[in-house]
Design a protein around this nucleic acid. Sequence first.
DNA 1: GTAGGGTTAG
Length: 655
Amino acid sequence: MESIQTIIKTLLKNPTQIKSKSQAKQIHAQILKSFPTFTSTLLSIYSKLNLLPESLILFNTLHSPPILAWKSIIKCYTSNACYLQSLNCFLKMRGSGIYPDHNVFPSVLKSCTHLTYFNFGESVHACVIRVGLEFDVFTGNALLSMYSKLQWYTAPQVFDESPERITHLQNPIVFNQMSKVFESMQDPDVVSYNTLILGYTQSNMYNEAMMMIKEMCNINLKSDAFTLSNLLPIVAEFMDIHKGKEIHGYGVRHGFDQNKFITTGLADMYANCNMVQDSYHLFYSLPQKDIVSWCSIISTCVQNGHFDKGLTLFKQMLTSNIKPNPISFSSIIPACAHLTTLPLGQQLHGYIIRNHYDTNMFISSSLVHMYAKCGNIKLAKQVFNKMENHDLVSWTSMIMGCASHGHVHDSITLFQQMEMENIRPNSVAFLAVLTACSHGGMVDEGLNLFKKMVKDYKIIPDFEHYACLADLLGRAGELEEAFVFIKSMLEIGKKSGLWLPLLAACRVHKNVELAEKISRVIWEFDDNDDDDDGVCVLLSNVYVSVGRYKDAEKVRNMKMKGKEKPGCSWIGIGNKVHSGPFLTETRKMLNNGTGNRTAYRLPESNRLKRLTEYWLHMLQIGSSVLDLSCEFLVMVNIDNLPLVRGDCITTQIFE
DNA sequence: GTAGGGTTAG
């Protein structure tokens, strides 16, 4: 038989003599068979380059792959996110009697982590011990990482002493495992420490994380970029700007200022410490902005009320050819909600559907909220009903959406459904359903829910809940009861905001006597001039409601102390919000229409030209006006009814 | 072998 070298030489001289597929395959097989080590080596090169298809072609030619081939293909599967295939290969390798070595376990453990296969991971751990590799630092680090991430999937949900906050307490068994792994490592390195620190940080165990940092210093392990970026969330949480700046300086000194993880982490930290300008600077300093840095700065904008800027950045992101991902949508949609720019929101929704992101819970919840806020409760419900699962936030968005659209019974039913599905309502969810009761005048229902919140769910009501309840009682005309209720909340009652809904209700029910009583109470503890103005306006409204215009004027001017700002209403047309002067004289003409909302259509031909006329007219009829069905969205509130929570029109008059 | 960003009220 010809030697393989001869075959190759002949082939190189005249490859055209091979005419059939089977001949070609035979030669291919012959070559691979003759150089088995060569195949494995080539495979390992492909694998290192993360070239999965090329690696697979080579791997499939091997009948009994040697350990190097197994290692390479398992690693390649894992780094290409083919975790199941990776584990399959691992099992096959074990089946063929080959013992895994220190190069195999890290990939296998990573696959278990991504698939959240905790039990499988544990058996791999057992395998590690059997082959005596628990002292290997790479394998140990992979084990640490796995246990740290999978503790979330094994830990029961536990409510800590603050019932508002649900935390996943660490599963003691898993933590025990982690400690064991860490202790059995003979020479833990900076990666081991980084992994532990991250595990602690993500479990909100900040003290433990800081302890690890100290320990690192003690054994002279130098912090690296991972350490710093793992620390930043802690600093942000505690708003410890001094520590944050220290880390910033350390990063700059050690050449990490181009590191996107650290820069983005720093930007988040500054934003959390109310230093949004510094966040912007850091973002712009990034030479290579990736999707995460864009999302981060966009959500910083939106969460700080810079909605326009958020939208501008979102557009800039698109023009710099960064493809939006699910997170970018859940960051930007709230901006559309706040600006009530329905067309833009719908455009984004279209993109979301086309990219099959519509199963994402975060996105769906923000869409439900956006549609409800923009006045389209029908679409909000549609999005909600299409969701496969609902979490607390999506339920709450829908409950609040229904409440603000006057679908009171839907709100309450949804709340009950949520409870039946064992979703524990938090204070926001209660606020939503209480708002519904308030809008529907359902006093008993509201009071019962309030009691339930305090007694059954041990939620400490905050100012908003009291305000809502006061509003409920006030709207229902139970003014005296409301007065007593608020007075009983001594400490909390020292905020005029709690009294304002009741004061507004006095206007509806033309109860001058109580209004004066309330105003006196507020002025007694008054330490806030801004609230003061609200009281004057509301009291003056009460006087207007019974025709006592002189008293009204007197009160209005009483506390203004020469700092009267021109009032202003605002009105949205299409995508723009316009503001204009507030007309005091029109206000006097208003004596009813408290909080009643009428859909008002502005014919297209009239547009801006006749806007002022409409505006005046709306003020005159004393309605908060909104148009939900046509392209004009008009927002006017002549009542200055504060705390009409969740109204889909954001009604506000700036006095 | 270790890293970052998101949803609900006002």
